[in-house]
Design a protein around this nucleic acid. Structure first.
Lengths: 110, 110
DNA sequence: TTAGTTCATCGCAAATATACGATAAGCAAA
DNA sequence: TTTGCTTATCGTATATTTGCGATGAACTAA
């Protein structure tokens, strides 16, 4: 895979979009974001009560969302409080909004 | 992985969103969609001219986009004409639009 | 100090994804 | 039929993702 000849170059937007999409590409991460969006605050512990998965697995998914910038965490001993990262959320919304809008403008004669 | 205990259940929307996101989770697929959106019509051949990747690899990515419903293909011998799938594109736009909007409404006190 | 609670990280196994070259399939023109 | 063009599929190698249990790290309370 990385023995590749493909020196394809990507724009910032292409990389940003695919990166966010990757973060959203697992249903449990969509579910987590939905839960975080719905609650005023969420802790990992509450997530493990709602989602029947190992705590380590959920922690792993939270890490993926963190690294993609979709959420942020605050330590509130002994718990950790996770929330939507508002700034990056807005950016993602704009990126996807523009992306899908661009696709609409294409005049395809098929 | 699928030897798993996790009988997590997902809503239709969660599965649809994550499925589309997975299709968009590779930068070259974002690039391909951008090209298809910009051109009035595209052929795989034109894509291989623009994207320095093996033809088989691009075909593979096109297949992924096809199966996700983001594009559609028409045989136009000896070529195949690929276009944005308008109907599913609109659906994806709505799904993501609603998803990101929901995330905005969350009142997080962090 | 000793437990107890909460979450992250490690190490492993299995499944998927990614990329390529080689080859097949489908069709048109010679 | 044969040739050439275009695209799909196969087979393979490697990388990444996913999931789990076990364990570690950080903090609180007893």
């Amino acid at each position: 895979m990385q023995r590749t000849l493909s020196d394809v170059t990507y724009t910032e937007d292409e990389l940003a979009l695919s990166g966010i999409a990757k973060a959203l590409s697992h249903p449990v991460r969509i579910k987590i974001l939905g839960l975080l969006a719905g609650e005023t605050c969420c802790f990992t512990g509450e997530l493990t009560e709602v989602i029947p998965m190992a705590q380590s697995t959920i922690s792993q998914h939270l890490k993926a969302l963190l690294e993609a910038g979709m959420i942020q965490g605050e330590i509130d001993p002994p718990k950790v409080k996770y929330c939507i990262n508002r700034q990056n959320w807005d950016r993602a919304q704009r990126l996807f909004g523009a992306f899908f809008e661009r696709g609409r403008s294409g005049v395809c004669h098929c």
